[in-house]
Design a protein around this nucleic acid. Structure first.
Length: 472
RNA sequence: GGCCCCUUAGUCUAGCGGUUAGGACGUCGGCCUCUCACGUCGAAGACAUGGGUUCAAUUCCCGUAGGGGUCACCA
């Protein structure tokens, strides 16, 4: 009988929910759901300079959009609360005091200026600055302005067996007595996480690769506090196409941006999890399948390059699997955002049905559907080639034929186009292409019959007339 | 620069001592076809490098190179 794991996602609210953060959250969530454990959300807002309420909301929104619900956290009280670090200040102070009493931490009275000077000297001498231990043996004077530092052993090393990277060890001489509590009593990152993870009963810490170098210090603090160590799992970073850490200059990096770009949450989750994890040759996974198959053993240790092309492909797989109704409903907000007068009606059903195999995102659906909802933008090159005196009789024949069909349907249109082509000994393409340009403005579209059906007889006739009139 | 981590095609990956090194995105070509797309068939394309260990290394060990991360009273 093993106790169910408790995992957490602990973002700092300094911006939107980043793609990388979303993936970290996803792995944690997956593990909790797979094992029947708990997924906690904790907001690390101790950096008051950069933390904003807006960012907190953005994180909630991003997680909810992806379908990641938390068992404990803001809005979901539990034994681990409160879930904002700024509401846990007394907890950090109490733990710091415990360490001071035991001689494992001490007050440091050095000023920022003194420290900066030391750093400058170290830099001039081209050596690594380490806090020299100036205040290590000084008595505790609570009334004097101070920070609290954690005492790090001089010799030896601290290591752990990382769930994704295997054994890792950090020599103590690369560490220093670091500040755990600022002079205003607010904890620094490394101390805050440890106290929180200990008091929240976190058993597995899965987080970004960039925390590998913090882990040994944190383990030392766990030991100082006499707490049981969690298991650590460090997920590799997501890189941009240039091999650098993914950032804004690589394009959209927040999950909500992808919502606006017309991606489906399950597709984004699917892609993100597959970036660094695999299950044989399978590429497309429902969230349920991910929960079922997820396993740390299959999480890779190498950083992955974010590939928008592949995510688009994954999105297309999900998009095309939607029902006409869901596809229409999902696309509608994007039509509205583009200022197009689409409505949740039969026409939209016809449009999305045709675009399902052609558009990979809702935004592409809108792009390709624009010509059915707005005046056409005639492609000059296409017009020059296909709306000519030579094609004019073909356009006229189709126009007249269509005028004679009060309520055209598929078979009638087939007969019309085939008839016009056959009468002149032409292939269907010779007739369809000019008509396509006349009706959509370009040379790429769904089948020509479907285009006519989408536009409706009246609009199709108007566009044909306009095209014919435009031919010199 | 110190320390830590990583290294299979352009990209994501399978592989866990013996494989014609598998799949996917992308790319290129054929087929399908009224265009585009879908679908389908096919092609090109990878074990960074040097040493070991072993009967046998993509796989294990060490070095080198390359890449990434991190060195705050940020997280």
């Amino acid at each position: 009988m093993t106790i169910p794991p408790r995992v957490r996602f602990a973002p700092s609210p300094t911006g939107f929910l980043h793609i990388g953060g979303a993936r970290t959250a996803l792995f944690n969530w997956l593990w909790a759901r797979k094992t029947g454990g708990s997924f906690l959300l904790r907001i690390e807002d101790t950096d008051r300079e950069r933390s904003t309420q807006q960012a907190v909301e953005a994180i909630f929104e991003g997680l909810r959009w992806l379908g990641l619900d938390w068992d404990e956290g803001p809005g979901r009280p539990g034994p681990g609360g409160p879930y904002f670090q700024m509401e846990r200040l007394d907890l950090y102070r109490a733990h710091a005091e415990q360490l001071i009493r035991q001689g494992k931490a001490y007050a440091c009275y050095c000023t920022r200026e003194e420290l900066d000077a030391g750093r400058a000297r170290a830099e001039a001498a081209k050596v690594q600055f380490r806090y020299p231990g100036t205040c290590r043996e000084k008595p505790f004077e609570p009334s004097r302005r101070h920070v609290i530092r954690f005492r790090v052993p001089e010799a030896g090393a601290t290591g752990w067996d990382d769930l994704v990277k295997g054994p890792i060890s950090t020599p103590h001489d690369t560490l220093q007595d670091e500040v755990i509590l600022r002079s205003d009593g607010v904890p620094l990152y490394n101390f805050g996480v440890v106290v929180d993870d200990v008091t929240m009963g976190i058993t597995l810490v899965a987080r970004g690769d960039d925390h590998v170098n913090n882990t040994a210090r944190q383990i030392l603090m766990y030991q100082g506090l006499g707490a049981t160590l969690p298991v650590f799992a460090h997920l590799p970073m997501i890189l941009g196409a240039d091999g650098k850490r993914l950032s804004k200059r690589h394009g959209a990096t927040s999950v909500t941006e992808y919502r606006e770009l017309g991606y489906l949450p399950q597709a984004v989750a699917n892609y993100l999890v597959r970036l660094g994890w695999s299950h044989g040759d399978q590429e497309i996974f429902t969230l349920d399948e991910l929960v079922r198959y997820f396993d740390w053993a299959q999480v890779g240790a190498t950083a992955g390059v974010f590939n928008l092309e592949k995510m688009l492909w994954v999105n297309h797989q999900w998009l095309r699997a939607l029902s006409d109704d869901d596809l229409a409903r999902g696309a509608l907000p994007h039509f509205q955002a583009a200022g197009l007068p689409a409505a949740d009606d039969q026409k939209l059903r016809l449009v999305v049905r045709q675009l399902r195999e052609r558009a990979k995102s809702f935004v592409e659906v809108v792009q390709q559907a624009r010509c059915y909802y707005a005046p056409i933008a005639l492609d000059p090159k296409a017009a020059l080639k296909l709306l000519t005196p030579e094609t004019r009789p073909l356009l006229q024949a189709i126009r007249d034929g269509l005028a004679g069909l009060p309520a055209p349907d598929g078979p009638q249109l087939t007969a019309l186009f085939d008839g016009v082509a056959a009468a002149r000994g032409l292939g269907l393409g010779k007739v369809a292409q000019p008509v396509r340009v006349a009706l959509t403005g370009g040379t790429a579209s769904p089948g020509i019959h479907d285009v006519v059906l989408i536009l409706g007889r009246t609009e199709a006739l108007a566009r044909l007339d306009a095209a014919i009139a435009g031919i010199p």
